[in-house]
Design a protein around this nucleic acid. Structure first.
Length: 904
RNA sequence: GGGCGGUUAGCUCAGCUGGUUAGAGCGAGUGCUUUACACGCAUUAGGUCGGGGGUUCGAAUCCCUCACCGCCCACCA
C-alpha cells in the first residue's frame, strides 16, 4: 500500500466503476424493497451544504439497506423551478438587451430548454462527487414528459372533482416577476413607514374654516395613501361608541369626490390608529374579505407592474406606486385633507425571489381546495401509518394542516406546466379542462353543440402551474404514474423521506395529500426531518454574507468521505448543525487513521508470510471468519466481543435513525478498540498468526460497518487488503451482524472477559497517570506492585510489563499494604515504587485535597445507604453498586492516608 | 398574537421511558520523532446540567413558574 491515501484517485475510480456496473440500479424482484426519492434540487442549483447534509443522510440509509439485502432504489432528479429558471434565462437575455416578450413564448421556452441542456446537469454531476448511490438510470425531471402527463391528469381530475376552481381573489403579486406568489413565498420584513392621518368629509358637510375644508369628517389613518382611489368604504368597529352613529352614512373620498359608505365590521381594531379604516378591497387581503362581507365594489387601480391605471384617475395614471404615493400625499395636503403624519414600524412583504415589495392585487387565479385533501393526510399521521422522525414535527404538521388555506396554483410565468384549461376564443366564460387540447375540443363541441369547432377556436390558459404542483406528485409520477408500471407497484409507497424542516409545508404535506388522494396510500412511511446547516455563529449560510462553505471545496481539501463522515458525526436530527471548516478535519483524520491501520495489517501479514506462517488462519470465504482455535488470549477475545457489540449497536442505531450515534459507535470501535487497543496488543502478541487473523476479521467487519458513511476509502482498502477481488464491491457485501452464539461460545467471548481486559487497561492507564503525577518520565522503567486476588492477573504479566514500561511487576494479595502512591482500578490496586525524589510538601498538600474530596463522596454514600427508603425502594443492583462504590472509596481513602503519612 | 424548540465543560453537542462520583469530539496544558499513523500517542485540567419552586428514597432527566435565545405561522390598517 502507498504511504498516503489518494482520495481523489479513489473517488474518481470507484464512482465510475459503481455507476458503470449498475450497482445503483435494481429491478423489482421478490425481495423486500427499500425506496427513497431524493428531494429534487432546483435545476438551476449548485450543490450547497444543505444538499450535502440531506444527501449524506439518505445515502447512509440507502447503502446500509442495500447491504442488508433490501432491493434498493434511491431515485434522483431535478426540479424545473419555474421562477428561478426563468429568471436565469431572462438575465442572460437582458445581457443581449432583450426581454422575454421580444422573443415570444415559443422562442423563449426553446431558449430555456437550451439552457437546461447546457447547464442543467451541473448539480447532477456535483452530486456524484458526494458518492450518492442514486439510480441514475431512473433520473427524472419535474418537467419531463412523464411528469407533465401526471400534472395534466391531476389537474383535470381535481377539476372534475370540484377541487380545482378559478376565482377572483386577492393574491400576493410581485410586480417585477409579474406573477402571483403563495403566502409562503412572501417574506415579511420590518419597515420604517409612515402613518398618514387623512380626513374624509362626511357627505353634505358644510365648508369649514381655513385649512379644514369641511366641518364634519372622519379621520382615517393609513400607511398606503396611494391606494386611496380604490377605497370603497370606511369601516368602524360595531362596538365602538365613538363612531356607531356614523354607520350607514356616507363620506366623500378625498381627491375623487366619490361618496362611499361607512360600515361596521369586527375586523376593525378600536385601539389601533383612529379606529376608522379605509377599505380598499382590491388592494389589501383583509379589506378584500371585508368587501366580500359587505358587497363592496372592488376597484383595481393598478396595472400588473404596479403602475396606476385609468381607474386611479387621470392625474395619477401611469405613475409608479411610490411616485403616486408622493403625489397623493401632496394633493391631500394641498386640499387640506391631511391632518398629520406619524412614523410607524410595520412589516412589509417582499418577493422571496427578487425582493420587490409585494403588492396585494385582485386577479383571476386557479386554486385547489385543500380541506378535503388535508383531512385524510392528517389522519394518516394521527393513526401512525406515517411517522415523523423526530416525532415532534407531527405537531407542526398538524398545526398547519388543520388551518390550511386554499392553494393558489397559477403562476404568470412561461416556464412551467401550462394549465390544461381552454377557452373559446373571445370569451373567458366557458372553460374546458382536459389533459390534451384535443380532449378539450371534444368537451367544447359537446357543451356548445357546435361540431364544427376546431383547435383554432380554442385558446389555452396562458398561465402555468406552481412548481410545487409537479413536486407534490414526485413519489409516484417518477415511478411511472399514471401508467400502471412495475416500478410503481413495487417501489410505492416509498420508505423514508429525508428532508429539512423548511419544506414540510411546501412539499412534505402536499406530497402526503397527493399520494393519498391519487394513489390511495401515503407516499412514504417515515418522514425524517433534519436541521439546517448553519454557519459557526448560528446564522444562516448565504453566499452574499460570505459565510457559506462549499461542499465541493471541502471534498477537494478533505475528501468526500471526510465530508460525509464529519457531517454524520456532528449532525443530530434534533437541532440545526453549526459548522466550520475545522469540523471536517475529524473525518479527514479518521480516513487517514483507517489507511494507516490498513498499512499496519498489511505489514503484519507480510511479516508472517516471510516467516512462514502466512495468512493461514484467515479465510475470506463466507463471512470472512474462521475458527481461530480454542486458546485465545483475553485480548483476542476482547476485540471479538467489541466487534460483535459494534455490529449490533450500529444496526440498532441506524434502525432508529440515530445516524450520529451510529457514526460515533463505529468510530469508537475502530479507533479506540481496534487501533488503540488491539493493534497495540497484536504488536507483541504471543500468538501472532491467530491475532493477525483476528485483526483481519474485525477489520473487515469495521470496513463494512463504515461503508455507508465512508464509501470510497472502505472500498479502496477492502481491495488493497484483498478482502475483495477485482469485479467485486463492498457496496454489495453483507452488512455485518456480529458473531453467532456458537462462535462466541467456542472462542470464549464473554462480557466478563471484556470487562477483565478493560480493567487490565485501566491498570495501565492508572500506572501511566501515576508516572505523570509524580513526574516520572513515561519512558522510565519502574517497579510496579499490583494487589489483586484475580487468578487471571498473573498471566497478564508480560503484556502489562510492556504496556506499563515496568522493570518488574509484583503480584500480591489484595490485603497487602504499601506506603507507595497507588490507584485503585477494577484490576486491583496499582502501586508505583518511587525511587526518585518527590516534592514532599506539594504531595502532602495534593493528597490532603484529594482526601477531602473523597470524604465528601463517602459521606454522601453513607447517608444514602443509611436512608431506609433508599434501601427499601431502589433496585437491588443500584443499592449493591452503591455499597461497592462506598467500599472502594473507603479503601482509596485508607491508601491515601497511608501515603499522606509517607509525605508528612 | 398563536405554535414549536433550546439553555449541560472555553466551543459544538450526547445523555432514550428518573438510579454509580454527568460524557464525547474539538480547543487548552504537559510529556513523547517507541518504524501503521504528529491528520499521531500518552496524560492533565475544566461543569453546584439557565434561575426558583414542586413530585420522589433519589431529578440534568418528570411537573409548575420565571428569565434569556432561536425558529415557524399569522399579521394590524
Amino acid at each position: 500500500m502507498e504511504k498516503h491515501y489518494d482520495s481523489k484517485a479513489a473517488e474518481a475510480k470507484w464512482y465510475q466503476i459503481w455507476e458503470k456496473n449498475g450497482y445503483f440500479h435494481e429491478e423489482p424482484d421478490a425481495r423486500a424493497p427499500y425506496s427513497v426519492v431524493i428531494p429534487p434540487p432546483n435545476v438551476t442549483g449548485i450543490l450547497h451544504m444543505g444538499h450535502a447534509l440531506n444527501q449524506t443522510i439518505q445515502d447512509i440509509l440507502v447503502r446500509w439497506r442495500r447491504m442488508q439485502g433490501r432491493n434498493t432504489l434511491w431515485l434522483p432528479g431535478t426540479d424545473h423551478a419555474g421562477i428561478a429558471t426563468q429568471n436565469v434565462v431572462e438575465k442572460a437575455l437582458k445581457k443581449e438587451g432583450k426581454r422575454r416578450q421580444d422573443l415570444g413564448r415559443e422562442k423563449f421556452l426553446e431558449r430555456v430548454w437550451e439552457w437546461k441542456k447546457q447547464y442543467g446537469g451541473t448539480i447532477v454531476h456535483q452530486q456524484r462527487k458526494l458518492g450518492n448511490s442514486t439510480d441514475w438510470r431512473r433520473e427524472r425531471f419535474t418537467f419531463d414528459e412523464g411528469c407533465s402527463k401526471a400534472v395534466a391528469k391531476v389537474f383535470t381530475q381535481l377539476y372534475d372533482e370540484g377541487l380545482v376552481y378559478k376565482g377572483n381573489y386577492i393574491v400576493n403579486w410581485c410586480p417585477r416577476c409579474g406573477t402571483a406568489l403563495a403566502n409562503d413565498e412572501v417574506e415579511h420584513e420590518p419597515n420604517h413607514g409612515h402613518f398618514w392621518y387623512v380626513r374624509y368629509p362626511v357627505a353634505g358637510s358644510a365648508k369649514g374654516v381655513a385649512g379644514e375644508p369641511y366641518k364634519d369628517y372622519v379621520m382615517v389613518a393609513t400607511t398606503r395613501p396611494e391606494t386611496l382611489p380604490g377605497d370603497t368604504a370606511v369601516a368602524v368597529n360595531p362596538k365602538d361608541g365613538r363612531y356607531v352613529h356614523l354607520v350607514g352614512k356616507t363620506v366623500v373620498l378625498p381627491l375623487t369626490g366619490r361618496e362611499i359608505p361607512v360600515i361596521s365590521d369586527d375586523y376593525v381594531d378600536r385601539e389601533f390608529g383612529t379606529g376608522i379604516v379605509k377599505i380598499t378591497p382590491a388592494h389589501d387581503p383583509n379589506d378584500f374579505l371585508v368587501g366580500k362581507r359587505h358587497n363592496l365594489a372592488e376597484i383595481n387601480i393598478m396595472t400588473d407592474d404596479a403602475r396606476m391605471n385609468d381607474l386611479a384617475g387621470e392625474k395619477y395614471r401611469g405613475m409608479d406606486r411610490w411616485e403616486c404615493r408622493k403625489a397623493i400625499v401632496a394633493d391631500l395636503e394641498a386640499g387640506g385633507y391631511l391632518d398629520h403624519v406619524e412614523d410607524i414600524d410595520n412589516q412589509v412583504g417582499h418577493c422571496y425571489r427578487c425582493h420587490e415589495t409585494v403588492e396585494s392585487r385582485l386577479s383571476k387565479q386557479w386554486f385547489v381546495k385543500m380541506k378535503p385533501l388535508a383531512e385524510p393526510a392528517i389522519a394518516a399521521v394521527k393513526s401512525g401509518e406515517v411517522k415523523f422522525v423526530p416525532e415532534r414535527w407531527s405537531k407542526i404538521y398538524f398545526n398547519w394542516m388543520e388551518n390550511i388555506q386554499d392553494w393558489c396554483i397559477s403562476r404568470q410565468l412561461w416556464w412551467g406546466h401550462r394549465i390544461p384549461a381552454y377557452y373559446l376564443k373571445g370569451g373567458e366564460e366557458a372553460v374546458f379542462v382536459a389533459e390534451t387540447a384535443e380532449a378539450a375540443l371534444e368537451k367544447a363541441k359537446a357543451k356548445t353543440g357546435n361540431a364544427s369547432l376546431t383547435l383554432d377556436d380554442l385558446e389555452q390558459d396562458p398561465d402555468v402551474l406552481d412548481t410545487w404542483f409537479s413536486s407534490w406528485l414526485w413519489p409516484f409520477s417518477t415511478l411511472g404514474w399514471p401508467e400502471k408500471t412495475k416500478d410503481l407497484d413495487y417501489y410505492y409507497p416509498t420508505c423514508d423521506l429525508v428532508t429539512a424542516q423548511d419544506i414540510i409545508f411546501f412539499w412534505v404535506a402536499r406530497m402526503m395529500m397527493a399520494g393519498i388522494h391519487f394513489m390511495k396510500k401515503p407516499p412514504f412511511r417515515n418522514i425524517v426531518i433534519h436541521g439546517i446547516v448553519r454557519a459557526a455563529d448560528g446564522s444562516k449560510m448565504s453566499k452574499s454574507k460570505g459565510n457559506s462553505l462549499d461542499p465541493l471545496e471541502l471534498i477537494e481539501q478533505y475528501s468526500a468521505d471526510a465530508l460525509r463522515f464529519s457531517i454524520a458525526l456532528i449532525t443530530s436530527l434534533e437541532c440545526d448543525t453549526k459548522v466550520n471548516k475545522e469540523k471536517f478535519e475529524i473525518g479527514r483524520n479518521f480516513t487517514t487513521k483507517i489507511w494507516n491501520a490498513a498499512k499496519f495489517l498489511e505489514m503484519q501479514e507480510q511479516a508472517l508470510a516471510t516467516s512462514g506462517d502466512g495468512r493461514t488462519a484467515f479465510d475470506n470465504s463466507g463471512d470472512g471468519r474462521t475458527a481461530f482455535g480454542q486458546n485465545l488470549s483475553p485480548d483476542d477475545r476482547h476485540i471479538l466481543y467489541a466487534a460483535d457489540l459494534a455490529c449490533r449497536k450500529t444496526s440498532d442505531l441506524l434502525e432508529a435513525y440515530r445516524i450520529q450515534d451510529g457514526a460515533l459507535a463505529v468510530y469508537d470501535f475502530f479507533w479506540t478498540e481496534i487501533c488503540d487497543g488491539y493493534v497495540e496488543y497484536v504488536k507483541d502478541s504471543p500468538n501472532k498468526a491467530v491475532s493477525v487473523a483476528i485483526l483481519r476479521d474485525v477489520f473487515w467487519k469495521a470496513l463494512r460497518l463504515l461503508h455507508p458513511y465512508m464509501p470510497f476509502v472502505t472500498e479502496e482498502v477492502a481491495h488493497q487488503l484483498g478482502f475483495l477481488k477485482d469485479g467485486e464491491t463492498i457496496m454489495l457485501q453483507k452488512f455485518p451482524e456480529g458473531y453467532s452464539d456458537a462462535e462466541k461460545a467456542a472462542w470464549g467471548v464473554t462480557e466478563e472477559n471484556y470487562a477483565f481486559v478493560n480493567a487490565k487497561r485501566e491498570a495501565t492507564t492508572a500506572l501511566r497517570a501515576l508516572k505523570a503525577e509524580y513526574k516520572v518520565p513515561p519512558s522510565a522503567f519502574v517497579k510496579v506492585t499490583i494487589a489483586t486476588d484475580d487468578p487471571r492477573a498473573a498471566a497478564e504479566e508480560a503484556s502489562l510489563k510492556k504496556a506499563m514500561r515496568a522493570e518488574s511487576i509484583d503480584f500480591v494479595s489484595s490485603g497487602s499494604d504499601f506506603a507507595m502512591p497507588s490507584k485503585i482500578t477494577g484490576f486491583g490496586t496499582v502501586y508505583l515504587s518511587l525511587e526518585g525524589l518527590v516534592d514532599k510538601a506539594a504531595e502532602a498538600k495534593r493528597i490532603a485535597g484529594e482526601l477531602q474530596k473523597l470524604s465528601g463522596f463517602i459521606k454522601a454514600s453513607e447517608a444514602k445507604l443509611a436512608n431506609e427508603n433508599f434501601v427499601a425502594h431502589a433496585p437491588e443492583a443500584v443499592v449493591a453498586e452503591a455499597r461497592r462504590k462506598l467500599a472502594d472509596n473507603k479503601e482509596k481513602a485508607v491508601q491515601l492516608e497511608k501515603l499522606a503519612r509517607l509525605f508528612a
